[in-house]
Design a protein around this nucleic acid. Sequence first.
DNA 1: CCCGCTATTATGTATGCACATATTATCGCT
DNA 2: AGCGATAATATGTGCATACATAATAGCGGG
Lengths: 231, 231
Amino acid sequence: MVQPVTWQSVQAEALRRIRDREWPPGSMIPNEADLAAEFGCARATVNRALRELAAAGLLERRRKAGTRVPVNPVRKATFEVPIIRHDIEGRGKAYGYRLLEVATGVPPEPVRAVLRLGPRARLLHVRALHLADGAPWCVEDRWINPAAVPDLDTADFAAMSANEWLVRNTAFSSGGIEFFALPADAGLAGLLGCPPGAALFGAERTTWAGMLPITAVRLVYAPGHRMVTAI
Amino acid sequence: MVQPVTWQSVQAEALRRIRDREWPPGSMIPNEADLAAEFGCARATVNRALRELAAAGLLERRRKAGTRVPVNPVRKATFEVPIIRHDIEGRGKAYGYRLLEVATGVPPEPVRAVLRLGPRARLLHVRALHLADGAPWCVEDRWINPAAVPDLDTADFAAMSANEWLVRNTAFSSGGIEFFALPADAGLAGLLGCPPGAALFGAERTTWAGMLPITAVRLVYAPGHRMVTAI
DNA sequence: CCCGCTATTATGTATGCACATATTATCGCT
DNA sequence: AGCGATAATATGTGCATACATAATAGCGGG
């Protein structure tokens, strides 16, 4: 009995041909039916293998036109957006948390802009400090739209960070993240225990439930933080 | 004639049930066969829909155990790693490039460490400045392993950046990226036109062909740079 | 009561087929 | 030659089926 050709094996072989330039950049590769015949498998198997390679940016597929190896492959990397507590605990450190401020108010203009809110919208403002082994890890500065989070008044942000509470209690559909560097101002320097002007790694996220803005958050990490991902 | 139920429509409905908490976090969802019967489609169609949701971190699937909605969904975001020239041109700016240095030598210890090379390995060191509309955009500081790049001596890094040349001319299989913030030293400040100590956004990539290290590169961007991605 | 074997079950995947869809190539007409 | 209708073609997707695989539950023996 012959063992079946798996889509993984087809994918691995296709990847090898791309890497070894048997299928040179810019060239067309054989069509699915031919490859299926060559590998001795069904076309659906080839299809799945190539589809995933195309999703990863290693092939370009167009109906009728066929499949080609792109000249300039655009590599796609995936990274996970974990709950901060899990991130810290996953590094073998003890998690700590300090709530700094909870208040309702009108957010500053940049926050209103990214959430596409009018000048009179009142949001819940939560600031907190996350700690790893007792040392400052990151500052969370968040604005939450009560209109998009029905149970918001039941949340106790002294007991659970807004980060974790929102992940558990809201249903979000889309959003964006931006990463950047910023100098520590006096407030950040005090909280993170670093000199003013230190180079800090920051991330800003916005999350939406359809057209409804849920939250905008800025996370600023203590000096030396690195975001790591595989490619 | 009834139009077939597409895997996209099944996926959309599953996503709705997760978001609307019809399938609450932590709960099991019906098995594929039951869902197929409910939607009036084949199990393979349900499988594909749910498989992709699981890949996105919105479901957890285990054989025999079934499929559940995770309590703490780990969102996965993908970002593209473009050629720097394309990145700049895609923002509607004119691309410019200045080669700063090409030399062969022994890399500093941190570079040797990430590439797992011995203390005597000699690599090609390339430094260059990328410009957008004439203004400094990012500094590229790269070490290339000649043993992994056969045609390296044919490359003219004055005409094409090492970034782009390597994307076109090497077959890499895996790698990693790290993002971080760093203060501008005197050299970076001079190249990027910013004061020393300014907070800069940096990225370090390593790429491999199997077990063979190809290149390690540090990119440091001019102040204000933001890396943007959708989630 | 504990351990290990076995049966069960849900997902994972391969197959052959059919048809849909997008795109290109070609043919015929003016 | 130019243009538009039409045929051809590669990928995209759905279906029914079969079997593989992993993990659990349950049973039996010690």
